[in-house]
Every structure is written in C-alpha cells, then in structure tokens.
Amino acid sequence: MSKPVFRKLPAHTMGYVMPLILSIIMSCIVSLISTLKSTGFSGFELPIWLGAWGLSWVVAYPVLLLILPLVRKLTSFIVETP
C-alpha cells in the first residue's frame, strides 16, 4: 500500500471541515450564477466574480456552522434513522 499524500485530520474536525468544503462549493456556484445573471456572459469579468465569491463565502461559512445543528435536528424529524 502506498502512503497517503498528506496526513488526514482527526475525526473530531469533521464538523468544521464538511461545512468549509460545502460553503466553498455552494458560494462558488451561487455567486457565479448571480454574477452571470447581473452582468451577462459578455460582461462577465473574473475579478468581479471572485469578489462576489469571497464575500459570499465569508458569510456562508459562519452561517453553516451556526445553522448545521438545527438542520440536523430538522432532518431527523423527516428522515428515519437506522
């Protein structure tokens, strides 16, 4: 077996890493769609989108950390646990 490229983080960090990755991906997609809708394809400029993405992510990550426990509880009311 080959060694992993990097050392994995401990399991207890999952509650921070998962929202981090989710917020990066979601804010990227949402800010791109929003930027394209407001500027159009012909007016699209990478720096404008990156600024929107950065601002979106700065908001998205803390919000995810705050609401994730509530979302887990709401999900447990809807989804049967094994």
Score class of each variant (00 low, 15 high):
L9V: 11
M26W: 12
I33A: 09
T81A: 12
I48E: 07
I21G: 12
W53K: 00
S31D: 01
V17S: 03
P47G: 08
G54I: 04
F41S: 05
I25T: 11
M14E: 15
E45D: 13
H12D: 11
I33D: 01
S2M: 04
T39H: 00
S34T: 10
W57T: 02
L64D: 01
M1L: 14
L65N: 06
S38E: 12
I33T: 14
K8D: 11
I25Y: 10
I67E: 05
I33Y: 03
A60V: 07
L70P: 06
L74C: 11
A52Q: 04
P47E: 01
T39G: 08
G51V: 05
K3H: 11
G15S: 03
L46C: 02
I67W: 10
S38N: 04
F6Q: 05
L36E: 02
T13S: 12
K8L: 04
K73L: 14
L64G: 05
V58N: 11
G54F: 02
L20T: 04
M18K: 00
G54W: 04
S31L: 04
L50Q: 08
G43Q: 05
I78D: 00
F44E: 01
I48A: 01
M14R: 15
L66M: 14
L46I: 02
M26F: 11
S56E: 07
G40W: 09
G51R: 07
P69T: 07
